[in-house]
Simulated assay, not measured.
Amino acid sequence: MPTILVVDDHEEIREALAEILEEEGHKILQAADGLQALEVVASSRPDVILLDIAMPGMDGLETLRRLKDQPESSNLPVIMVTAQGDRQNMVKAVQLGVRDYVTKPWEPGEVEMCVNWALKAASVVPNQDPPLLAQSA
């Protein structure tokens, strides 16, 4: 069972993402900020990280930079899930090595598709096809 870390300072967003991904059969870990996310990654080694940008303290871009700077987490797929859909943040995230970028509010099936693609690319679920967006709409 793949493990997904959901990082967002808003509990209702974390819970919504957790519910969606638990229905897909994933184990969910949660963190409320970037520092807590780094601690969870160090102790639990998730398969994929969903990461918000706008968080108090350490924002998602700094968290992503630190994850990619550490050898033990540099290859972890990170998907930004954020209301910050501006081009500047997207470019920064891509330069830092983000796997995918989802803007809030996300479309039905979008998060599941991105997570499944990330897992497939990381060979965590090698024979699982991602859900189609049209099936969820």
Rank of each mutant, 00 (worst) to 15 (best):
V78R: 06
D9A: 13
H26W: 08
V111I: 15
M113P: 01
C114V: 11
L50E: 03
S73M: 03
L132W: 11
V98K: 06
V102G: 08
A54K: 11
V124L: 04
L35S: 04
E11N: 07
H26N: 13
E110Q: 15
V115T: 02
V124S: 00
A18H: 03
P108C: 15
D69E: 11
E112W: 10
V115F: 00
Y101R: 13
A16D: 00
L29S: 01
D86F: 05
G97H: 04
D86C: 05
V48A: 06
R66E: 13
S44D: 09
L64Q: 11
I53V: 06
C114D: 09
G85S: 12
L38V: 05
A83K: 07
P130M: 04
S43Q: 11
R65L: 07
E23S: 10
V78K: 02
P130V: 02
V115H: 01
T82M: 10
E62T: 12
E110D: 14
N127D: 00
A83Q: 07
A137K: 15
L29A: 03
S73D: 04
D8Y: 12
P46W: 03
L133D: 08
E107G: 13
A118C: 10
A54M: 07
P77E: 06
E107R: 15
A31V: 05
P46Q: 07
P131V: 10
A83Y: 10
R65C: 03
E24S: 07
P105T: 13
E23V: 05
L17P: 02
Q30K: 10
A83M: 08
S123C: 05
M58V: 14
E24L: 02
E112G: 14
Q95S: 13
V6D: 09
Q84W: 06
V78F: 06
A32R: 10
D8R: 12
P77I: 08
G25F: 05
L51S: 05
